[in-house]
Design a protein around this nucleic acid. Structure first.
Lengths: 329, 329
DNA sequence: TTGTATGCGTTATCAT
DNA sequence: ATGATAACGCATACAA
């Protein structure tokens, strides 16, 4: 009908229905009210196309049904799927997701936390690279993959176990000499345990291994150089590679193919994450699959059903090996 | 210091600083105020760790600096990158993104629009499959890829032009007989024009073509059957294929390889979208690249710098061909 | 059971 | 320039 008048309020509905303000509020919130009144109010609501103003409501109730989610970006399939899963877990509980991309920037991460506090969100879920993120005590925060210690709970995959599984699977598939390759943040974090688990398993099995570990920012060619250095007469020094992520595994795979080394015949590769082509097709490579749905569900339930005080500080969820064609089985 | 007391308000800051409420408000909003007062207020803010309550602010100003973004999911790299770009465009303008995944569900799409209205967002950007989405007149909405007509502006790639470019490129690369494959929504939408552009170019060039068009939900095997039907003595009837998306192109590519048909030697393939491995590595296939940054920027600027009345109703942004290894150049 | 009045935290309009 | 006060839209304690 009308063109650009302000949205109707409860007062408008009350007037339209010929009842008091409080009655409208009760109808809206499903509180008991006389049948005839309810109907009149509902008709008025429909007629005016009335919508509750969640800002006014939030101001009163101090509940916003909104959770802030911060990850570096939505370009990387891992972060995108994580955000997707968190969003679904939230939606199931009738909560909304306020999203922030941090781009790995410490200042932005801190700024977004402040923004989230202003927004009075019911909680914050973040995958942060800021080692000394300051966060107000009155908004619950759950960290993914980065253990801040003390008050802030952290949820992650069983990275250590995943590293072990990778080494064991390669050896089980006949590999006699392994390599581990990693590029990543130098900030202490859970994914760094992938290496530890890998090494632990190699040593337990008495299998020799080589490491190539570089920090973020290092050009990829460092790995090409590494591979070439370890190639003699067209043959690699190792026959099994564990890459810290599927993304790196994919790049290594391409380099090896260019070098004329066959995968998985000459060398087998296992990545980490469980990334699929286009999100839902086949795996990029053989991989350690992270339980993203469970991680998301755990984070959300910790935020919303906060038993607070006695929350465990670090939760590692089980991972699973999946063959994606870059191993023999 | 304190443990679980309510967050401090302006009133607390005023008391702490020994000034009036209005003065605090002015300091917070950068309005002119006596230097000595400003400093005292700023100190009090720091001391109490005060944060503006955006709910109270939004209630007063009727401005939330929040835009709702609805796409089917964040699993598909296309949607994820779209959401990423929109988020960046919003962040640049100091706006936040409230995200909703619709899962292609008409009811959810409608529900989320209602939710967004309740949240009093400053606008809605959606990629909706609901042909008769109802939306309140007082929240600006911009649609991506789906033209609703009339009041609601639509932003999309130049799908028609992209279809033309694909056909022309294939012919330029030596193809003599083409095929177009599509799986998608039967709802009228902009991406369907890819086919029209393709056909138009084929006819203009006098090049024969075959179409395989199925609706969402059709099993992929329909394409395998199609390919087999068009294979005689190990040779395909056509030597150039245009797929409606990179995702489909990738699947076709795999099928062809299984059939022992070489790409791009025996048949060249062009997809659509410009999807990259892990978001930022190489293209999955030769493709028509959608200008996602521009699409996002356009949507955001239409929402926020709404010149309203005279907005054009359909904006098609230029696409670009990129070789991704499944064509000869 | 229904209506009235107060306050949530902020901005903005007033006097001062 | 600064301080008091009224709204914003809603929930709720209280009165009718």
């Amino acid at each position: 009908m009308s063109e650009n008048n302000p949205a109707p309020t409860m007062k408008d509905v009350a007037r339209e229905a010929g009842v008091a303000l409080g009655t409208v509020s009760k109808v809206i919130n499903g509180l008991p009210v006389g049948e005839s009144y309810r109907i009149r109010v509902e008709e008025a609501v429909a007629k005016l196309n009335y919508r509750v103003n969640s800002y006014a409501k939030g101001l009163k109730t101090n509940k916003t049904y909104t959770v802030a989610v911060m990850v570096p970006n939505l370009i990387s399939p891992f972060f995108a799927k994580l955000a997707d899963c968190i969003n679904r877990s939230l939606a199931r509980r009738k909560h909304r997701m306020l999203f922030y991309a941090t781009d790995y920037d410490h200042n932005q991460e801190q700024e977004y936390v402040i923004l989230a506090e202003q927004q009075k969100v019911d909680g914050i879920i973040c995958l942060s690279y800021n080692p000394d993120l300051k966060v107000s005590e009155n908004i619950p925060l759950v960290s993914i993959d980065r253990y801040f210690g003390g008050q802030i709970p952290c949820v992650s995959s069983d990275n250590y176990g995943g590293g072990r599984i990778a080494a064991e699977k390669l050896v089980e598939n006949g590999c006699r000499s392994l390599a581990f390759m990693r590029i990543g943040s130098s900030v202490t974090n859970e994914p760094n345990k992938r290496k530890d688990g890998f090494i632990n398993a190699c040593e337990a099995m008495g299998v020799p291994y080589t490491l190539k570990i570089v920090d973020d920012g290092t050009p990829y060619s460092a790995f090409e150089d590494f591979l070439r250095e370890h190639t003699h007469k067209g043959k690699l020094d190792f026959d099994g590679i564990f890459c810290v992520t599927d993304s790196l595994a994919y790049q290594i795979l391409r380099t090896l193919r260019q070098m004329g080394i066959r995968v998985p015949e000459d060398v087998q590769i296992i990545g980490f994450d469980g990334t699929r082509h286009f999100g839902d097709q086949d795996f990029f490579c053989s991989t350690i699959v992270q339980p993203l749905e469970e991680i998301a569900e755990t984070c959300v339930s910790m935020i919303l059903e906060k038993p607070l005080g006695k929350a465990p500080s670090l939760i590692c969820l089980p991972v699973q090996y999946a063959c994606g064609g870059t191993t023999k089985s």
